[in-house]
Design a protein around this nucleic acid. Structure first.
Lengths: 339, 339
DNA sequence: TTCGAGTATGAGACCGCTCCCAGAGATCTT
DNA sequence: AAGATCTCTGGGAGCGGTCTCATACTCGAA
């Protein structure tokens, strides 16, 4: 069996009280006693039982992360990198990370509820926020600690981190307009997702500025996947709108769109320009390499986790709201408008 | 405060013993009493405290999964899908999933140790096995429950699931040889990884059969990433060997290799054929779509988790060792040898 | 000298749950 | 009718920690 406080106490003829406090470095324990206890603990190979400690402290030292996924073939590079960021920060702060995947909706909400009510986690990281996000509404109602990556519509009285996607998209449009593009199509994620709204907002704002110069915009909704981007681009290409540039709201869809365009014999970056958003590793190695907006997703993961840890520790965060400024990554998927 | 057994007991004038057993449906509790207890529990909104139960049961109902990652930019589609498989199965079986990411080596081993010794998990899922795997050696030594995705060299006295990668690669080589290819280059992962060995073994076996027909093989080691595949393909293309086909040991490297080949103006599937392995979603949408070997990674995740759960429950699994037979997915990245 | 403050340790409750064991009735056996 | 058996419930220990409170001792100040 595992070594307990009692074993140490017995060995050195002290009580568990003393041992416990010595090991936790309380300053009401004599230095020699501390020394004695520590040596005995080392010798016996003592390791505290996390469960017992958690029960007593009424804390789980665990952070929950429930990834919203559609269907089993879930392979979003976004999440794996975000996960790594959150996980490493959590580990560094002494927290465990409890991960689940649930499709948005009923099951997802149940997962949040049961994790809270059965005392499995101390706080949640929310990812990929939705406009009127039921997760955030619920956590707020329960007064349960959380931090999110992404904002919501309405009151923002919780710690969050987000990228200024609107500004990122504005930069994309400005870049494209500088290359002469006026007829631009945009492939959007479901508009219930907040980041989709921000990105679309940036696109619209950019196009508004182009209105006097004949700017035209067509927005088509898709589903964030590569396949979705492919299909949607095909729809766009069949359409009479015939854009000179396609602005996809994430890299995965942009890469899917590239396939569709290339399949029709067009050259990406010459006949049609394509942009993405996120700067996933794949974007650098697509063919041609994808012009996109950088989103440091690993760092965002660590920062979101840090925000939550601050809340859990009861520290007053200097900054509860972090908005990162994006940067445009110019590669070869865009070129001047063909005449 | 949360409702406890004691609250229910007090309310109906019974003891916590009775309440506990009624809720756990022990058959030594009278049916009316059970009814009474259940109603009171519902009324008060009782939810058992997981921590307390776990402490008492000396079980954590938690499965550990430590993903081996190199560097922070960790975005392997492989892992996210595997994770989803494991996670969903764990949830279905009433287990929590504790996830960490660690670079292989010292830190990784410490994570295993501390998770075991501080009683955080009941068992581990090991992924991406290595030839003489320190994780498996350790868990075996500690007699700690685990199941793995992947085999090791030597004794296989633990539950595992694996794909018959050797056979998969054999099929690839046969397919390529059928198209007339004889000078074949292979981009390999680090050979310390078991699946690399199996895949290379299959490649060699296939080439051995081609020896009488002038088959020539060049193997170059890379690192599983898209970037690695790109760089390694460039090295290959600079080499005098000039292969007519490149067999990459995973899809990510294959896609990277495609970029390199295309950058030099070659047409993939005509001038040079390329194959991958894994059939990640991206493979379908690369340009051209990638010929590869299917590996149902989501299902593998669920099955690995199931193996572990059987061990944890003390059930005797009918099958402790599962080898899946792969299937070749033919797409457009291969063609007949150019003369 | 005596009291108060400070220091170091012990005793024991408690977190919320499970489970062993005892015991009270009810029913059955001979 | 008396003991044996069965059914149901209660008492209480214990999982492995933490924390409050009490206590014994030392020491300097009034």
């Amino acid at each position: 069996m595992a070594v307990t406080l009692k074993d140490i106490a017995k060995k050195i003829g002290k009580t568990t009280t003393t041992v416990s406090r010595a090991l936790n470095d309380y300053d009401d324990i004599g230095p020699e006693t501390k020394e004695l206890v520590r040596n005995a603990a080392d010798e016996l190979g003592y390791i505290p039982n996390t469960l017992a400690r958690r029960l007593q402290k009424r804390r789980t030292d665990t952070i929950g992360l429930i990834l919203p996924t559609f269907g089993p073939r879930f392979s979003d590079p976004f999440f794996s990198e975000f996960l790594a960021g959150v996980g490493n920060k959590a580990a560094a702060g002494g927290y465990d990370l409890l991960v689940s995947t649930r499709p948005p909706g009923e099951q997802e909400m149940q997962a949040y509820q049961s994790n809270i009510l059965s005392h499995r986690v101390d706080g949640f990281i929310i990812v990929r926020t939705r406009a009127d996000d039921p997760r955030i509404n619920y956590l707020r109602k329960m007064n349960f600690p959380f931090a999110s990556f992404g904002r919501v519509e309405g009151v923002l009285d919780f710690p969050y981190i987000d990228e200024d996607s609107a500004n990122g998209m504005l930069r994309v449009i400005e870049y494209l307009s500088g290359l002469g593009h006026r007829r631009i199509a945009c492939i959007s994620p479901p508009l219930e997702l907040m980041f989709a709204r921000h990105r679309i907002k940036g696109v619209k704002e950019g196009m508004d500025r182009l209105r006097s110069q004949g700017g035209e915009l067509l927005i088509v909704e898709s589903d964030l996947t590569q396949r979705g981007g492919y299909q949607t681009a095909n729809i766009l290409l069949d359409n009479s709108f015939s854009p000179t540039a396609i602005v996809a709201c994430n890299d995965l869809m942009a890469i899917g769109a590239m396939s569709a365009v290339q399949e029709r014999g067009f050259v990406v970056g010459k006949d049609i320009s394509i942009t993405g958003f996120d700067n996933i590793p794949m974007a650098e190695h697509s063919h041609p390499p994808l012009t996109t907006v950088n989103q440091p997703i690993y760092q965002i993961g660590t920062m979101a986790c840090e925000l939550l840890i601050q809340v859990l520790r009861g520290e007053v965060a200097e900054k509860q709201e972090i908005i990162l400024q994006p940067s445009l990554i110019v590669r070869q998927s865009c070129g001047p408008t063909p005449e």
